[in-house]
Each structure stands twice: as C-alpha cells, then as structure tokens.
Design a protein around this nucleic acid. Structure first.
Lengths: 159, 159
DNA sequence: TTTCAGAATATTGTATACAATTAAATTGTT
DNA sequence: AACAATTTAATTGTATACAATATTCTGAAA
C-alpha cells in the first residue's frame, strides 16, 4: 500500500554536511601539514590555547569528544611535543593537559596560518555567520529530537 | 611583531560543520538501529537503491569515498545480507555491487523511516534548501582552493 | 605479441569516533 | 569510619576515513 517518496542522496542535508565536513578536514589537514597536526588535533590545540590547562573531561565537553577518542589523541600530541599530561594532585582521577613551551611559541604561527585559510575561503563574515546560524538551528533540533527518547517503531504503521 | 587575532573554536565554521555532521550521524544511526545500518552504510544503500548495480568506483564517486573505506564497508553489508559483490565478467578488475532481495524488500521501510526523521527535524523545505545552498558554496570554495596547489608557506611572511 | 602505462580493487598502516566496560579515586550517606 | 554511588580516565572492540602500496587486469603502443 504505502507509496513512500524516494530518498535521493543529493537532496539529503545530512550528506551535504557530511561531505562538507570531510572537505574541511582535508583543507585544514593540508594547511596544517607544516605543523604535523591532524584536524582533530588542531581543534584540541585551539581549545587549549584558549584555556589551558584543562582536564580531559573539560576538553571533551568543548570538543564533544569522550576519553575514548581523546586519550589516544592526547598521547599523540604529547609524543609530538605539544602538550604534557599530568595527573592532578588535588583529584587523582583527573589528568590535566598543559601546553608545552613549543605549543605556546607556535601559537601565533598557527593562528596566522588559519587566518590565511579563512581568507582563501573567501567568504564574508556575514556569509559565515549566516551559515553557522543555520547549522545551529539544525544542531539544536537534532539535540532536541535525540533527547526526546527517539522515534518509536510504531510511527511506521501506515500499512 | 605580528599580532594575529586569536582563533576561537566557537567561531569556526569548520567546527560548526564537524559538530553538526557528528550529530546527524548519531541521529540516523539510532533511527536506523532497527535495520542495523551505520550512517555510512545507510548512504551507500541510498545510492544503490537509486542505481544498483554499481561498481565500487562508481559508488565511491557518489559517496566521495575510496576503496580503502568502501571495500570493508561493503563486505560488512554483504555479511548482513544487504548486497552481493560480484566480479564483473566483462572487466575482471571491477566488482559490481548488487542489491539482495532483502535490500529491495526493505527499501520502502527505510524510506519511510527517513521520512519520519525529516519530519522530526522540523525544518521547512526552504530552510533545508537554503542551508544546502550555503554548504554548496563552502564546498565549492574548498574544492577550488584545494585544486589551486594550496597555500604556500611564504604567505606567512609578515615577520 | 610483448610490453607497459593506466585503471580498479584490495591491503596496510595510522588516526579518528564512540559504545561499553574497567579501574581508580572521590563524595555522600549513614 | 564504612561503603555505595558517582566521577574520571583508560581500555577494548567495532567501524569509518584516507594515504600509500600492492595486485590484477585492460588496452594501447611498439
């Protein structure tokens, strides 16, 4: 009975976003190649440059990543000399992520590189703000829906 | 000398997109849990429902994924009964991905589920179109820039 | 036809992601 | 103090991504 409309990949907002996300990844990954930073490593550094030291948990809240992702990522950043991981004295459950001197020294250089990337992108501040505003709408919808004990099977019943 | 403006995570379009992409992933992943499809598996099925059979290469062009990602993904889809992978008779380099009967049978059911997801998202067609249009702009910029033999180190020189 | 450049897929290695579990430390309650 | 509940990181297992390489096959040129 039920004749449901076809779902075309090219009309899916999710794929649009998925694809854009991957392209941005590559873009920054190559722009940051001189620093040997992957994109997730780069955004971790951004947060740390804003606010270090931070616990793994605090960093994870900003990046929306959990320790399963962050622990190995931070170990790699440590091995490459960007951060140090230090057990907190006051609460031994926590690990504090500190910037190294190298990280502090390279901050401006990375900022400058990112500035160039933004220039290359060639979007006006307004275009960027508008796009981010639309994405914020999408994200808040997704959060709301996810929180609402998602879709129950029985909505399907048009058979 | 050079005082470069700080780079704040929350003002980065890339992070906005990265974050939205992950949320969409979870959203569809849970919506499609009854079918045991991950998000990348789901978009692969979408393309196949449009056009099967397709070679790995053709599928990869639509999804912007290479064989390094697709080969194992398709093996998992095969194991779960969604597709069959068949060496082409006419060109033995190629592997044709066919839909199984189960996949054909479940198509409408999945389409219906996605329809519900779109309803839950609560965005108008116009909002979705507008957002996708803005993302298309971003993506074409990223493509252009990437194609242009990317950023040379010397642009940095403001020291 | 032999050879060889190019094409298609698979494989290897590295790095995310994230659910689920574990382990250790802390807090709250009695 | 004792101990259950919670919190924080780390670990385990599965699934993407993607660069780089290997393998096999095809088609074109010599």
């Amino acid at each position: 009975m039920s004749k449901v409309p076809p779902v075309l990949l090219d009309q899916q907002l999710c794929f649009s976003i998925y694809s854009a996300s991957k392209k941005f990844n590559h873009f920054y990954q190559s722009a940051l190649a001189p620093f040997s930073l992957t994109y997730p490593q780069y955004i971790a550094m951004l947060v740390l440059w804003e606010d270090a030291p931070l616990t793994v948990h605090q960093l994870g809240e900003r990046l929306e990543l959990d320790s399963g992702t962050l622990t190995p990522l931070l170990k790699r950043l440590e091995k490459q000399g960007w951060v140090s991981r230090v057990r907190s004295q006051t609460d031994e459950r926590q690990v504090l992520i500190h910037l190294t001197e190298m990280a502090t020294a390279k901050r401006e250089e990375v900022y400058a590189r990112i500035g160039q990337c933004q220039t290359l992108l060639g979007m006006t501040d307004k275009e960027i703000d508008d796009t981010m505003a639309e994405l914020a709408t999408v994200k808040s919808q997704l959060d709301t829906v996810s929180r609402q004990r998602l879709i129950t099977k029985d909505i399907d019943s048009d058979n």
